[in-house]
Design a protein around this nucleic acid. Structure first.
Lengths: 103, 103
DNA sequence: TTGACATATCGTAAATCATCGATATAATGG
DNA sequence: CCATTATATCGATGATTTACGATATGTCAA
């Protein structure tokens, strides 16, 4: 796992929609319906479901998920046609720790 | 103390120079010379000293300090001609806590 | 192979940010 | 009051971000 870049992370977090996505992904079962036989917790939520809740286009949603991924805040898994995104809890705690001790 | 706005805070932190200022202010004695009879720890560091270390103009430094202040990350005290800035440690811990528990 | 669907990428216009120089405001000393 | 010094604000310009529609790519099912 590559070291986190605080600036990149803070930029990723500087946007309402991306913050919203992260909050939804914190408890996928509470915010998204089940999708096939896929474990929401282990694998994540697909782009279409996130697009449906966000009030934005598929294009924007996909790009925002990429930003979150480049910042290391989420992880993507492709299964068939779908790409599932889930949070990287470890990275999120690392950021909290960075602010708490190093900032 | 008004509640923190995470987006505003993250925007404030999304900039190398502003992050740098916050890090310097974490340990003012290590980064700034003494200024008159003012307690660096209690009162803070004046804009000129920060400007001198940043490689930017006084105008930019002043604006960046305002951004940090609006985000609640620093506190300003005017004494005579000088304005001294110090970190708001409580706000910084609040942000760490927000990421750790609520994000 | 083709068609249909899910996702990613590209190109763009508008909004916001970074940073500066010029100038305004505030406080001090003479 | 005046000159000087410290800080804040204004106005400008280039860079980055936002968010979109159009299009490309990848995958499955028939």
């Amino acid at each position: 796992m590559k070291p986190i870049d605080p600036i990149e992370v803070f930029k990723a977090l500087s946007n309402e929609a991306r913050l919203q996505i992260l909050e939804w992904l914190k408890d996928p079962k509470a915010h998204f319906g089940p999708q096939g036989g896929v474990d929401l917790i282990e694998i994540g939520v697909c782009v279409s479901q996130i697009t449906a809740k966000l009030n934005m286009t598929q294009s924007t949603t996909s790009q925002y998920l990429s930003v979150l991924q480049r910042a290391g805040l989420v992880h993507a898994t492709r299964l068939g046609k779908w790409t599932y995104y889930r949070r990287d809890e470890e990275a999120i705690q690392e950021i909290a720790s960075y602010i708490q001790h190093d900032l």
